[in-house]
Design a protein around this nucleic acid. Structure first.
Lengths: 206, 206
DNA sequence: CCTACCGATCGGTAGG
DNA sequence: CCTACCGATCGGTAGG
C-alpha cells in the first residue's frame, strides 16, 4: 500500500506497473499477489480510505461549533491540513477517479457529492443568518474546496509555514470569500486556534 | 487533434490508445501515422498550444490597465473564462504533465512558473500600493489560480450562468481574497465589465 | 517467495 | 487509406 501510494501519486495508476511496485519493495511482481487480489484493489483501498478519513474529519469538526462562521473556518482548516498531510492520497483521489471500477467508483462520487453539499449548506446557512455575503453559495463552496485541494500540489513540510499556520491562513481566506463579519476575520481568531501566525509569512519555492 | 483532445481529457493520455483515437474518426490506428509522428506529439501540441494561449491572454489583459485592482479583476476573468471555454485542454494540461517528455516538459513547467509569478507580482504590487491586504501574496495567488482551474471541472455552457457572468463573479472573489478596497468590489464593476449579473445566481448540478 | 509462462494490448513499422 | 506484423510490456496464473 505504501509503495502503491508513492508510485500512483508520482506516475499515475496506469503509469505504474505491478513490477514497479514490487521493485520498490525488492520483490518480483507475482509475489504481490500473495498480499493483494489485483492492482485495482490497491487503488480501491487508497481511495475509499482517503475519502472516508476526509469525510469523517469534516463531520467531526463541524460538530464542534454551532456558530456558522466558526464552522466554516474549522472546516477549511481541516480540509487544508488533510491535504497538506496526505498529498499522495489526495492526488490519487483527484486524478484517478475514472480508473476506479464500479461499484466503488459510484460510491466515491457519492461521498464527494456529500462533502461538497455540506460545504454549500454551511455557506447557505451563513447567508441566511446574515453572517455571510455570497451571490452563489455553490460557486463559493467550489472555490473553497478547490483552493484547499491545491495545497496538496505544492506544500512541503519543513518550510517556514507549519500545517497549523497554513490551515489558519486558508480559514481566513474562506471567511474573506464570503465577506464574513470583519470582527470574526483576521488576527483575532489566531489565538483561539492555538496558532501563532506572523504578520507576514511566505513560503519558498517547492 | 480534436479526437485526441476529447479522449485524453476523458480517459487520460495513458488510458487512450491510438486505436481509440482512430476509432473515433472511423479509421484504423496505423492510418494516424500519416498525420502525426507519434502519440506523444499529440500531447505535446495540445499542451504547448494551451499554455501559450493562456499566457498570451494573460499578458494581453494585464496590459489593458495600470490599476492593480483592475488588473487582478481582469486577470481572474480571463483565467476563468479560458478554463470554462477550454475544459478539455486545461484538464489535460493539469493532469498529464508527468507524461510529457523533455524538452517540452521543462518548457511547460517554465511557462507555468511564469504565469504563477505574474499573479504573485500583481498581488505584491497591490499590497505595496496599499490596495490589497494579504499576509502572503504567494498563498493568495495559489488560491486564486487553483479556484479558477476548478471551473474546468464542472462548468457547462447552457446553464443559468454565462461565461462572462462566471468570470465577473470569480473576479469579485479574487478581490475579496485580498480585501481590495470595498469601493472597487461588488456590483459597482459589473456595468464596466459589460456584464449584467443578477443579485443571486446559482448553477444546477453538472 | 520464486521462475516460467499466458493471452491481450500497446505504439509503431513495412509494404502496397 | 489498408492489412499484416513487430518487439515490448501489461496484469495475472500455474506450480513449486
Amino acid at each position: 500500500m505504501e509503495a502503491a501510494l508513492t508510485l500512483f501519486a508520482e506516475r499515475g495508476y496506469l503509469g505504474t506497473s505491478m513490477k514497479d511496485i514490487a521493485g520498490l519493495l525488492g520483490l518480483r511482481a507475482p509475489s504481490l499477489y500473495n498480499h493483494v487480489d489485483s492492482k485495482q484493489e490497491l487503488l480501491r483501498e487508497i481511495m475509499v480510505r482517503t475519502m472516508n478519513e476526509l469525510l469523517n474529519s469534516h463531520r467531526a469538526v463541524i460538530a464542534t461549533s454551532a456558530d456558522v462562521v466558526e464552522q466554516l473556518r474549522r472546516a477549511m482548516e481541516t480540509h487544508v491540513i488533510y491535504h497538506a498531510n496526505n498529498p499522495r492520497d489526495v492526488r490519487i483521489g483527484n486524478a484517478e477517479i475514472q480508473n476506479l471500477e464500479e461499484p466503488v467508483h459510484g460510491e466515491i462520487l457519492r461521498m464527494r457529492d456529500e462533502y461538497s453539499a455540506s460545504w454549500q449548506s454551511i455557506i447557505e446557512r451563513g447567508v441566511r443568518e446574515g453572517r455571510f455575503d455570497s451571490p452563489s453559495p455553490r460557486l463559493s463552496s467550489f472555490a473553497m474546496l478547490e483552493m484547499g485541494i491545491g495545497v496538496s500540489m505544492w506544500f512541503r513540510p519543513g518550510g517556514p509555514l507549519t500545517v497549523a499556520q497554513l490551515g489558519y491562513y486558508y480559514g481566513d481566506m474562506a471567511l474573506r470569500l464570503v465577506n464574513a463579519a470583519p470582527a470574526a476575520v483576521g488576527r483575532a481568531g489566531a489565538a483561539m486556534a492555538g496558532v501563532v501566525i506572523p504578520a507576514q509569512v511566505d513560503v519558498h519555492r517547492s
